[in-house]
Design a protein around this nucleic acid. Structure first.
Lengths: 110, 110
DNA sequence: CAATTTACTTCATCTGTCGTAGTAATTTCA
DNA sequence: TGAAATTACTACGACAGATGAAGTAAATTG
């Protein structure tokens, strides 16, 4: 399993990536993260919803409700223009981060 | 510059890597991080010294003093056996983390 | 009809980072 | 020679993000 301190800086990015694919809601996103990470990362519910609130406050996503005849009412989210820009920044930062941390990893220990 | 939340899970690993090369002390380590990261990451003093304390408490490093006729007294650190094991774990975790986060990065945005 | 799953919310706590500040010796340089 | 910069830390308080615990409630499954 992956420790949360590592992912910490990237939860927002992960969520934005998924919202870039399509509008979605909490439960679906958490399933998708588990799926795409091949069960290696399972986001905690509280982590997910507090990330939504953070992203909303920053204006990187917006929430809305969709009419539905089945299931419990859901809050849907979509990424905004500035959310996309933020996501792009984070992608570039990630490349840099990989380079930096790789300098301190000994391949012969893997 | 790299945001601290990203590196957060790896400061300890970075320090252990440097202590694996040779015994060292705070100031030297911070210079070395700057140098090896090609100025992309400069660790804050308080972050560094609180990391030392954390690592000491966990038994991953030990501190000692070395006789010296010049300069201000320094606290040196060396990595322990269990520190080495922890470092190796983190190296493996890092490979996993890269795989996971890469799943959520769009290459066409770099 | 009970158990499980879906879909959240609230709250309090913990950890690691970091700003601010202070101490003190040593080295540089004008 | 004296001021400024560098070296080498320590203490303290604040803050952000992650998380455990608990609760709510509707819908689905068996």
């Amino acid at each position: 399993m992956i420790s949360s301190d590592v992912i910490r800086g990237y939860n927002d990015t992960i969520i934005l990536y998924l919202l870039l694919e399509k509008e979605s809601y909490g439960y679906e996103i958490s399933k998708r993260i588990k799926e795409l990470s091949d069960d290696k990362y399972v986001i905690k519910e509280t982590t997910l919803y507090s990330a939504f609130n953070r992203l909303l406050k920053k204006g990187y996503i917006e929430s809305f409700h969709r009419e539905q005849t089945f299931g419990k009412k859901r809050t849907y989210y979509r990424i905004t223009e500035s959310g996309l820009l933020y996501y792009q920044d984070k992608c570039r930062e990630w490349e840099l981060t990989k380079e930096v941390i790789n300098q301190f990893i000994r391949e012969d220990y893997l």
